[in-house]
């Protein structure tokens, strides 16, 4: 393939100074991720995968090395520039959902448009947020406050929010960590269909091999280094598994 990778990191290092001790979270990591890939990053806690996620998400900057997002070096930008990159090119899905509490699902989904560099009218914000909520099957619950929604529903609100600005990549950090097994599979189904149907590039971080198995490519981390990086031949398909699982009553959205 000659196309530019969506993500290209070169010799990335990240060192934290914890008092006297220097902690090497990432030791010279290089990685290319192409458009439409569903990459799962797996590793035990402390392996550097969360640090990688923060740097990929432009929440943190590397100590050294370079990070090209859509061919543009984003490893050393000003705060305003990096905020704009986060807003337009990156969608986050967190383990703890990270939705605004006591705020409606619709308002949560609208949020990225509030901070977009080109102003978006209130009616357009609402329309686009509604469409995104419908796409994740929550069209009827837009008025609900997020604390009135179940974990699975909250994560779907988070996904709708992450996709609102059509980002280059969707970054998911342990997205199923707080969910029961059926809901986890449902969320993985959403990710898989996003990749298959809309060609969205996904980087998912997890410490569970079962979750990592839904990806099309698995990158394993240990002690700040990539220990393996291979295409996943035995990919799990969430849709098929869902059919076999008993339907949970509370999740009929």
């Amino acid at each position: 393939m000659t196309t530019t990778p969506v993500i290209s990191i070169k010799n990335l290092t990240k060192t934290y100074q914890m008092g006297e001790v220097a902690v090497h979270a990432l030791r010279s990591v290089s990685l290319n991720i192409n458009a439409g890939e569903f990459v799962t990053v797996i590793g035990p806690s402390g392996s550097g995968k969360s640090t990688l996620m923060h740097i990929l998400g432009c929440l943190d900057q590397p100590t050294s090395g370079q990070y090209f997002l859509d061919g543009k070096d984003v490893s050393h930008l000003s705060d305003d520039e990096i905020s704009s990159v986060r807003n337009s090119k990156i969608g986050f899905v967190f383990q703890g959902f990270n939705l605004l509490t006591r705020t409606s699902a619709l308002e949560n989904v609208e949020l990225p448009l509030l901070y977009s560099s080109t102003p978006v009218s209130a009616s357009e914000r609402r329309n686009r947020a509604m469409a995104a909520l419908e796409a994740v099957g929550l069209g009827s619950r837009y008025e609900h406050h997020t604390n009135q929604l179940s974990g699975g529903q909250q994560q779907r609100v988070a996904i709708a929010r992450a996709l609102l600005n059509n980002p280059s990549i969707l970054l998911a950090d342990e997205p199923t960590g707080n969910l029961d097994s059926r809901t986890s599979v449902e969320v993985m189904d959403i990710f898989q269909s996003l990749k298959e149907d809309r060609g969205i590039t996904i980087v998912l971080i997890t410490h569970e091999p079962e979750v990592a198995a839904y990806g099309s490519r698995i990158v394993a981390f240990k002690d700040g280094l990539i220990v393996s990086d291979e295409l996943n031949e035995q990919r799990r398909t969430a849709r098929g598994e869902l059919a076999e699982l008993p339907v949970a009553v509370e999740e009929t959205a």
Partner: peptide
């Protein structure tokens, strides 16, 4: 603080 973190992750600038 968490709300601030969420807003920043979603693209709010310091000035926002």
């Amino acid at each position: 603080t968490r709300e601030i973190g969420i807003r920043r992750a979603i693209g709010a600038r310091q000035s926002d």
